[in-house]
């Protein structure tokens, strides 16, 4: 896999010299791969990588054009299929990244739409969430809620006597995740009580509760694997 990505990065570097990410020596594909891994491992939905997705889509378009051009000009089939393979892999990453996010939205529609997570979504994802919610509410309304006695018909609350919304599925933030540090974070407090302090050194693997390192993931100081 690494060799094929190397092939892609070589070609893209020509047109992407302005790209800040390249100055750090990482390609957009690498960044997308990391975003995809994080999204896969995190129990809740992370911030949408808007600019990155845009760049990747442009690069995909460029690659597609290159491949088409090669085909027309009768470039060696092997070369073409190497480029095609590289293209397919990038496309897979992009599709899978978007898909995982939609599936998280499907799972926690209501929770996402009533919390800060709403701001993690792209514009299209927000529309998707609204529509999802509308359809799901209609479905549960017609099949169950409308047939229950008055006072028990809320989708958010068990009955009118509940003070908070106690019927909304939420992601389990307590789960353990595997993660890898990039740079040394130093002494890190795992919980509010301050009893549990871990020294996070650079480039090391940890298994920690997602809840504790949530902030580090957001600040991309740590990668989930």
């Amino acid at each position: 896999m690494a060799s094929s990505l190397g092939l892609g990065s070589g070609m893209w570097s020509e047109e992407a010299e302005i790209d800040a990410s390249l100055l750090e020596g990482t390609t957009d594909v690498e960044l997308l791969k990391q975003a995809w891994r994080n999204e896969k491992a995190a129990p809740e939905i992370l911030k949408f990588q808007g600019p990155l997705v845009l760049r990747i889509r442009e690069q995909i378009k460029l690659l597609e054009e290159t491949v088409d051009e090669f085909r027309e000009n009768g470039v060696d089939d092997l070369v073409v299929s190497l480029y095609q393979m590289d293209l397919d892999r990038t496309l897979f990453l992009l599709r899978s990244y978007l898909r995982i996010r939609l599936q998280k939205i499907e799972k926690y529609t209501i929770h996402i739409s009533k919390t800060d997570l709403w701001n993690h979504l792209s514009e299209q994802e927000q529309k998707f969430t609204e529509r999802c919610r509308e359809k799901m509410e209609k479905h549960l309304e017609q099949s169950v809620l409308a047939r229950l006695p008055h006072g028990y018909q809320s989708i958010m609350k068990q009955s009118i006597s509940s003070e908070e919304d106690d019927m909304v599925p939420e992601p389990q933030l307590d789960t353990f995740v595997f993660c890898k540090t990039k740079d040394a974070v130093g002494a890190f407090q795992l919980d509010d009580t301050g009893d549990d302090i871990v020294d996070l050194v650079a480039d090391d693997l940890y298994v920690i509760r997602y809840k504790s390192i949530k902030g580090l993931v957001d600040a991309s100081q740590i990668d989930l694997v």
């Binding site: 549960l140 169950v144 809620l145 229950l148 006695p149 028990y152 068990q158 009955s159 019927m167």
Partner: peptide
């Protein structure tokens, strides 16, 4: 009733 509602939902 609440339990039944939760189960149905």
């Amino acid at each position: 009733l609440i339990r039944n509602k939760r189960c149905l939902m």
